[in-house]
Every structure is written in C-alpha cells, then in structure tokens.
Amino acid sequence: MSQLIKLQAGVPGLVEADAWQLVRLPAGEAEVKKQAGKVVQFRLTGAETASAGQIDATEVPAGPVLLPLSVFLARRDALADRLAAREIGVWLETHELVETLAEAQPDLSVFPVIGVHIERFADGRAYSAAALLRTRFGFTGELRAFGDVLRDQLFFLRRVGFDAFLVRADRNAAEAIASFNDFSEPYQGSTVIEAPLWRRHAR
C-alpha cells in the first residue's frame, strides 16, 4: 500500500500512482563525528556533505526523477532538456539551504516537485525551509516531505507549506491522515492560512 499522502484541493488522501523516482547519493565513506562520546546526529546548517566522488557516481535513471541538490547543481547543463520536459525535481537535505537552490535556479517553477528530506523528525529546520520556499521564493509546485515523516508532525508540516508527505515505511499512512485534523483554527498565520486568528475572525 502507498505511503504517500497528498493534498488534493486541500484534502489529504493516499496516492497510489507516483511517477517520481527518488535518487540518492551512493553511500560515502562513513564519517562518524562524536561529541562527548556521543555520535553527532545533526549536521551543521549549510555544511557541504556530498563528496565529488559521490556526486559523480550517482546514476540518474530515465523518467521523472527527484535529484539530490548537489547532483542537480553539478549536472544542470546536461539535464537542461529533461528539466524543460519537466522530468526533473530536486530535493534538499534538512541542513541544506534553500538559498543555494534559489541562487542557482532563481525560477523554481521549472521544478514540478521539490523535496525536503526529514533526516530526523525532531529537526525543525525543514519547517523554515518549506516556509521560505513558499513565501520567499514563490514555489507553487509540489513540496514533498520524505524520510522520518511521522503522523504527529503532519499538521505542522502542512501548515508551513508541504503538500505531499511520504510517511515512514514502517508506519500506517492511512491512519496518519487523521492527524491533519488535530486542530481546527490555529492562532497564528503561517504559509497555509497566512493571517493570524484575529484577522480571520471577529473575536
């Protein structure tokens, strides 16, 4: 069964057909950083984590593909035709900057899909990334969260502007849909519902 939830006319539902192939970098040399004896689980904002070797070794299959930001940046000239054919989407790691993408490709509307990899559900950077993509860089295509995507974050992910959610494979996506309705009238505005409550309703 599909793990992909999409908003259609604002209503979340499971989507069976998904043409987009997620392309990942091949595994690099495992660099384990430790601090105070513990493995560091969060990467620094803006850190370049993909090696040239990994980028070169990434195979890009035919058909609609969702590429790592680093691969897109390295091969954008070669991919120009496929970009024009709307076969190319791009995805960011949680610690990568939306500005990096927007500087290289100011018109984001060339991408039918932009993904954000939620490496760890407790890392809130993805939420600012989505808000910026929608409000600052005007991206109106599909904004997909994938990775450590769990039911209890769906309400917030939707509010900052994600409209596609690939729920983690070991969780029940159909049941998770209920959490989109956790709250009916939020206090503050965000990407979806821009105005704060006091501007939406007479209180």
Binding site: F121, A122, D123, G124, Y127, S128, A131, Q153, F155, F156, L157, R159, V160, F183, P186, Y187, Q188, S190, P196, L197
Partner: peptide
Amino acid sequence: RQWSTFHPEFALLP
C-alpha cells in the same frame, strides 16, 4: 502566548 502556541515553524527548535 497565542502567537507562540502550536507555532508550526517553531515547534522543533534546536
């Protein structure tokens, strides 16, 4: 208080 309650972007800060 109202602005910060369930703020979607700032619910998972460092």
